[in-house]
Nucleic acid binder design. Sequence first.
DNA 1: CGGGCGGCCTGGAGGC
DNA 2: TGCCTCCAGGCCGCCC
Length: 280
Amino acid sequence: MPELPEVETIRRGLERVLIGQTIRQIKIRETRLRQPVKISKLKKWVIGQQVAALQRRAKYLLCELQNRAHLVIHLGMSGRLLYCEKTRPLHKHDHVRFVFNNGHELRFCDPRRFGLVDAVAPGELQHYTHFQNLGPEPLSPELTAAYLERRAQGLLRPIKNFLMDAAVVVGVGNIYASESLFRAGINPRKPSALLRRQEWKKLAQAVRKTLALSISAGGTTLNDFYNSDGEMGYFQQHLMVYDRAGEPCHKCASKIKRIVQAGRSSFYCPRCQKLGNIKR
DNA sequence: CGGGCGGCCTGGAGGC
DNA sequence: TGCCTCCAGGCCGCCC
């Protein structure tokens, strides 16, 4: 479900309410997530600690604690975080709860259980397994046209799949890959190595712009994204192609197309995003 | 060895 | 009402 803008929206919301709070208790009802929840590790590093900062790396939410350990949360496809009073009735899939001193708690709810809750010992974050093969942050100065062009050298895979590869650049999921390519006027099927210098420039700019706009809109709510206060995002009102198959392009009124690439839906405008003379 | 694909899960939508 | 199929915002390991 959540891509970078949604995770960033949650991070900002939690930052306002969690800094300085002490995690008094962790309640676990289900340990079978993407990887089994390590209860003893969580208790060892997290219980009794004050929240020092909320950070984000790729789609991972990081809660830095006063002892310099980190609580790591990934929302997978269907994960949600809700900050609420601890008396509020539980949802069926509220798997992990972090109870604070102020009568509130943070609930990790994840019906499909593709998400992750983990603790990382002080100073160990840079060695964390899941961070080892991640590319740069898309909103950092590292994401340049030159960087993308260099990484794409010799790669025949479609640009859409290249963009969604976290080893190339993190945070760009299925929605924002399609949206960024539309903004750049590039066909999702175009072989990565065949993009021109000017296209790389447009694409780097389009990725940054699309993500930044979505963050300012509070993310995209298609069915079930809500921020930590339970409010929806509004970027779905600005989607140009995602989930719009058969509808008219907002720029040229051509019918938006849906294709499947690497098992995922891609959406594009056949007129605004021409392939040129490359076949299939 | 790049990269496509299936699998991990539940639930909602739509067809019959 | 039910049962079936398909689909879903992520990620990883298996294979060709």
